[in-house]
Each structure stands twice: as C-alpha cells, then as structure tokens.
Simulated assay, not measured.
Amino acid sequence: MNTHHLITIKNNFVTELQRANKGQKTSLPFIRHEPASQSLVKDGELFQVLVVGGSISKKALVKKQGKDLRILEVSQKNQSPFKSKEAFLSFIEQGLSDSVTTLSLNLAYPLRPVFNNSKLEGILLSGTKENTFNGLIDKNMCKEIEKHILTKKKRKIQVTAANDTVCLLLSGLTQLPYNQLACGIVGTGVNFAFFLDRYVLVNLEAANFDKFPQTEEGKEIDKNSSLPKRALFEKETSGAYLYKHFNLQLHKKHLPIISIDDTKELTILAQETHSLYSQISRQILYSSSELVATQIAGISEFLNRDLTFVMEGSLFWEGFEYKTHLEQTLSKIHNDKQISFKHIHNSYIVGAAQLACPQI
C-alpha cells in the first residue's frame, strides 16, 4: 500500500480515538479500565494465573513474597476455540490447581470491567477469533467460574480477570512509568492498550477498527467467518487469518494449490528466494505490518508523547521481516515522537498476577 493511503488510514484511526475519547460511538470499543489496587492474597500465599486465548494457553502458580511475586511451575498447552459456555468452564475446571483459592485470569476476549468488593471482574462482551461462547455473552465470567467450581468441585474460590492486552500493559509498569507505556498484541489476534492517565487505561479492542479498505480476500474471509462484520481489521492483519489470504490468492491466481493451515508457514515460504509463493507470502506479511503500523503511529499521535510498546505475538517478533518492515513504515507515516518496542519475559503471567496482587 502506498504511503498516502497509509497516512489516510492512520489519520482515520486518530479521528476514531479522539471521538471515542469524547464518548462518541466509533468502531473502537475504547474500554476504559481502572487497575486493581487491593491485594486478594496474603503474604506467602499461592495463587494461580491462567492465560486463555489465542492458540496456546498458559498457567502458573505464583507466590506472594512481601512486595515481590515469585512465578512457579509455568506450563502451556494448545487451545481450541470455545464454542460454548460449557466448553469454556470445563477447560477452566481442568486447568485449576487443587492448591489455590484465588485464580487470576488473563483472557484474550473483550471484557467490560466491573469491580466487586475491590476485586476486578469482567463481563464478556463478545466472542473473537472463532470463539463464539454461546451462553456466556454478557455474563460475568468470574462469577460463572466461581459458581461452576462450587457446583462441580464443592470448592469456594475467588476469580479475578482482565483482557490480555490490559494484563500486558500492567506488566510494563514493572519496568517503565505509565506515561511512557503502551502495549500491543500482534499474533493470533491484534489489539492495543495505553494509559490515559495514571489511574485510567484503555483497552481499544483495536481489531474492530473499520475505517480502512478491505481486500477482496478479507471480505470473503469475513463473510465465511463465525462472526461476520466483526473484527475487520484483525481479519486483514492477524495470524488467525493471514494464511487464509494466501490460500485465497492462490485460488484467484489459478496457481497450483499448496494449501496451508497456519500463518507461521507464510514465514517459511517467504524465506524462499525466487518462488512466486514467496512473493505472495511476503506481500501478505508486509501488508499486515503496514496496517498495524498505522495504529501504532496513531496511538502515539493521539497521546502526543514518546512511547515504548510492550509487545507480544509471534507474528510481530518472528514473522518474516515483520518488525523491520513495520518500523520502516513508521518512519514514513509518523511524526517526530519516538516509538520503541520491548519484550517482557512472562509478560502475560506477570500482568495477570497484578490483578490478584497489585505491586504498583
């Protein structure tokens, strides 16, 4: 995409941010969020973190030790989409440790934050990335889990939860002040968050941005998705969908089909030197990185400050020339504010632990 078109998309994104900040309806949910301030666990107590969303789930036992948090027994496994309330609750039940009474959830789904006796909880606003969550939309996920575990296991636990991007942003507070921070996830899904001030952060649910031109492949993917006319930006940029762009382009160009079922395969194909498949793969990855750059630049211009983006997502960090091409795009469409990127080890777990035991 040429620079003029990218600048137009960036400006559209800034306008959406400005309007959303004034309370006007836009394509961006712009979910304001107050971080938790009181600890749910006692000194020396174990609690559990579950990271749920994307294609891989993670869990860890965490121990509060004075002002520090010690992360123990980290593990992960593949995760399938959740089509129903029952499937999700069963997954949580199976992953819950027998040794804890507090569960902190990092969820890659749009949540409306609510406080209940100083405990941060989340109401599920919608499904994403083929997770339809039938029976759970508009429900308090923490309360539903607590009731399920009490019924099934005769155990009383307390559950706190926040969106994965919120957790990622909170992890950044362990290393940088709020006014230098933003964060982004560019992997299976796409989202960004930032601080409006010290006590208010915003989860954009940036996947829903729609003030940009869709590709023909994107339109077809959207039409055939579980959630049509939703998350249009994500369907053009995220790992959950890019490989589908590749397959559709091969079909449209009448090329021999080497159908792929994982966006990571695009990077493998892109590394080939003189292959037509390589050219198509590179263009899909470059197009994604350019669109994502418009949102990163837009956030910096909206906030009018230098920012370090704490980033997660294998597409961003491991996709073929993805970060390099994104930075090159930023240099063409962005103003004079500095933008840098940072990775924090175990950020999803560190951030989710802040929900049960705020350290800042």
Rank of each mutant, 00 (worst) to 15 (best):
D261Q: 14
H274P: 00
A231V: 08
Q271G: 14
L269I: 12
S226L: 15
Y277E: 11
L255T: 02
S226P: 02
I258Y: 12
D262N: 14
L227F: 08
Y277I: 00
H274M: 06
K219N: 10
E272F: 10
D262P: 00
L227K: 06
P228R: 12
I260D: 03
L269E: 01
E272N: 15
K253S: 10
E220D: 09
Y243Q: 10
K229A: 13
A240I: 02
E234A: 14
I280S: 09
S238G: 10
E220N: 10
K244I: 08
D262K: 10
K211P: 00
Q214C: 08
L248T: 03
S225G: 11
Q249H: 08
G218C: 03
L269R: 11
N224C: 05
T237G: 07
D262H: 12
T215R: 04
S278A: 15
P213M: 07
S278T: 05
Q249L: 15
D222W: 06
E272L: 14
H254K: 14
R230V: 09
L227I: 13
F233I: 08
I221D: 04
T273V: 14
L232W: 07
A270C: 01
K219G: 00
T237D: 04
I258A: 13
G218Q: 02
E272H: 14
S281T: 07
E236N: 08
L227T: 05
K219I: 12
A270H: 03
Y241W: 13
K229S: 15
E234Q: 13
T263G: 05
F246L: 09
E265F: 05
Q271T: 09
K244W: 06
G239V: 04
K252T: 11
P213N: 06
L266M: 06
F233C: 07
E236V: 02
L255S: 07
K253T: 00
P213A: 02
S238V: 06
S281L: 09
L266P: 04
L276M: 10
L269P: 01
K253I: 01
L242C: 02
L232N: 07
S259F: 05
F212M: 05
L255V: 10
K211G: 00
K244R: 15
K264A: 08
L242T: 12
K229L: 15
E236A: 05
I258D: 15
L242S: 06
I280Y: 09
Q271H: 12
E236C: 10
D262A: 05
K229Y: 13
T267D: 08
T263F: 04
E265N: 11
D222P: 03
E236Y: 05
K252I: 00
I280D: 07
G218S: 02
F212K: 03
E265L: 13
I221H: 07
S281W: 09
D222F: 03
S226F: 14
E220G: 00
G239Y: 03
